[in-house]
Computed example of a mutant assay.
Amino acid sequence: MKTLNSPNSVLILTIIYFIVIVVFSIFDFAEHPILNRIVGGSRIPLLIFIYWLHSHTKNIIYLSALVLFFFAYIMFLESTPERSLYGSIVSLIYRFLIFLLVYKSVKNKNWFALSLASIPFLFIYSYFILLINEFLNAEIYLWILNGLLTSFIGGIALYNYLFEDENKNFWLLISSILFVIQIGIFFLHQYYLEALELRTLTIILFGISNFTFYKFMISDEERENEVSIS
């Protein structure tokens, strides 16, 4: 059991995680749907396993969010209106859980300041929504709510990074910026333009944004452990 929980195990799984990201982004498995599901679908389970081995807390909300994100990915594999709607619903629940984790972890909760800090993220997100709004149906309202949550997460990250010098805030800010860009590129690829370059960029941003948020979670847990010990 010590071997399984060793830092080496986390490092090896992290390397495998990024190898999967690189392979999946370079090679198009569209003609091999089973292989596409296996390679693409292995990313979130790998991240869950990495977090489970690394974390001493095992945050249930975070683990639940990752499981939901996995199911959202499965929903979006088929480009049908019904699956897109289900995927949008699951994505919104996932984003809400991420928002809860972020909001509970930060100290500075000045709503006015956080709202102002959210404006740049909301502006970028709104631009992507305007580009594809004619292709969205009922799910447009779900994605607007998702955008509000994502933008507010970004505002929390930016405000706390500027006024609280902690390692976790660095990871949160990087993750939040990548989340917004990733969703925007995903929109363009899913609903607007099926270009190979957009697919590659979406996969890379998917991998890095989720990994940096995992680093935020670990940093936050380590910080809490230090406070409790002291």
Rank of each mutant, 00 (worst) to 15 (best):
F71M: 07
L158N: 07
F71D: 00
V10F: 00
A117M: 11
L172K: 06
A195Y: 10
E226R: 15
I181W: 03
I26L: 14
S88E: 01
M1R: 02
T200R: 11
I183S: 15
E224G: 07
S228W: 14
S126W: 10
I181C: 10
R83S: 14
L188P: 01
V102E: 04
I44T: 09
S64I: 12
V22R: 00
D220E: 11
F49S: 14
F135I: 09
L92W: 01
Y214N: 10
L193K: 12
F128Q: 04
Y94G: 08
R223L: 14
L131W: 04
T3D: 11
N137K: 14
F76G: 03
S84Q: 11
N108I: 15
R199I: 01
P81N: 09
I34H: 01
I144H: 03
N133M: 14
S25A: 15
G40V: 03
F27R: 13
L63M: 11
N110H: 10
K104S: 13
I38L: 09
G184I: 05
Y159W: 13
S25L: 03
R95C: 14
I132W: 06
I19P: 04
T150H: 03
Y86L: 15
T200M: 11
N169M: 07
G147D: 04
L149F: 10
I203P: 05
F186V: 06
A113T: 08
E82C: 00
N137T: 12
F170K: 14
Y94Q: 08
Y141W: 08
G207S: 02
E221V: 06
L162D: 02
I174E: 05
S228Q: 14
P45F: 03
N160K: 05
I16G: 02
A138T: 12
S209F: 13
Q190H: 09
A157T: 02
I16E: 00
L63W: 05
P33H: 01
A195V: 06
N108Q: 15
F213P: 09
I34D: 00
G155H: 01
S219G: 01
I174T: 11
I204T: 04
K107V: 11
I183W: 07
I48M: 15
T80Q: 04
Y73C: 08
S79G: 04
L11C: 02
K104N: 12
S105M: 05
I208P: 06
N137Q: 15
Y103L: 11
I50A: 08
I16P: 05
E164V: 11
L178V: 03
L92Q: 02
Y127C: 09
L100I: 15
S118W: 00
N146T: 11
S88H: 02
N225G: 04
P7G: 01
D220A: 12
H189E: 12
Y103I: 11
L47M: 12
T202F: 10
S25Q: 00
I140R: 06
Y191R: 05
I144D: 02
F70D: 01
I38D: 00
